[in-house]
Simulated scan of single mutants.
Amino acid sequence: MTWYDGYVSNNKYYGDVIFSYKIGVQGVGGVQLGNVYLGVVGDKNGKTGGYFYTE
């Protein structure tokens, strides 16, 4: 599963994405091990912040 969202507020862009990772054979199924969370904040000058963590 992958989820993403992005929006603009106060002249800044906020983007978030979640990647789920599994172990197993593609098409046969598998066991979900966890999620990776990424986020970024930027303005007209580029990236101003962000985050990365796993769960």
Score class of each variant (00 low, 15 high):
34 G>H: 02
18 I>W: 02
29 G>A: 02
4 Y>R: 11
17 V>N: 13
9 S>W: 11
35 N>D: 14
17 V>T: 14
45 N>M: 06
10 N>P: 10
51 Y>T: 07
35 N>W: 06
16 D>G: 14
42 G>P: 01
17 V>L: 14
16 D>Q: 13
41 V>P: 01
37 Y>A: 01
12 K>T: 07
34 G>M: 07
7 Y>K: 12
6 G>C: 00
30 G>V: 08
43 D>L: 05
51 Y>D: 03
27 G>H: 12
16 D>I: 12
45 N>W: 03
5 D>T: 03
3 W>C: 04
5 D>G: 06
21 Y>C: 03
39 G>T: 02
27 G>K: 05
10 N>Y: 10
23 I>S: 09
19 F>R: 02
10 N>D: 15
6 G>W: 04
13 Y>F: 05
16 D>R: 14
47 K>H: 00
41 V>Q: 08
42 G>N: 02
54 T>P: 00
35 N>Q: 12
4 Y>I: 10
13 Y>A: 08
24 G>M: 02
52 F>S: 07
8 V>D: 11
16 D>S: 15
35 N>Y: 13
28 V>C: 07
22 K>E: 08
21 Y>V: 03
48 T>L: 06
24 G>N: 07
33 L>C: 12
50 G>P: 01
17 V>F: 08
40 V>H: 00
15 G>R: 15
44 K>N: 09
50 G>L: 06
35 N>A: 07
55 E>N: 11
10 N>T: 10
31 V>F: 13
9 S>E: 14
49 G>N: 01
20 S>M: 03
3 W>T: 12
4 Y>V: 09
44 K>S: 11
29 G>H: 05
55 E>T: 05
16 D>K: 02
52 F>R: 05
17 V>K: 06
15 G>D: 13
10 N>W: 13
14 Y>W: 07
26 Q>E: 13
25 V>W: 04
21 Y>M: 04
37 Y>F: 01
15 G>T: 14
20 S>W: 11
6 G>E: 06
3 W>K: 11
22 K>N: 07
27 G>F: 03
19 F>L: 15
34 G>A: 03
26 Q>T: 11
11 N>Q: 13
13 Y>E: 10
25 V>A: 11
7 Y>N: 04
8 V>I: 13
36 V>A: 12
1 M>K: 11
32 Q>T: 15
22 K>F: 14
55 E>V: 08
11 N>D: 15
5 D>S: 12
23 I>M: 10
54 T>G: 07
52 F>W: 14
31 V>I: 15
23 I>V: 15
38 L>G: 02
15 G>Q: 15
1 M>W: 10
44 K>I: 04
22 K>V: 01
45 N>G: 05
1 M>S: 12
39 G>L: 00
27 G>N: 00
37 Y>K: 05
11 N>K: 13
19 F>I: 09
11 N>A: 14
55 E>M: 03
46 G>R: 01
47 K>V: 14
2 T>S: 13
51 Y>N: 04
27 G>A: 06
38 L>S: 00
53 Y>N: 12
18 I>L: 06
3 W>I: 11
50 G>N: 10
24 G>F: 02
33 L>K: 08
17 V>H: 08
49 G>V: 03
49 G>K: 02
44 K>E: 12
2 T>E: 15
16 D>A: 14
17 V>I: 15
47 K>Y: 03
31 V>R: 10
16 D>Y: 15
12 K>R: 08
44 K>M: 06
1 M>I: 05
8 V>A: 10
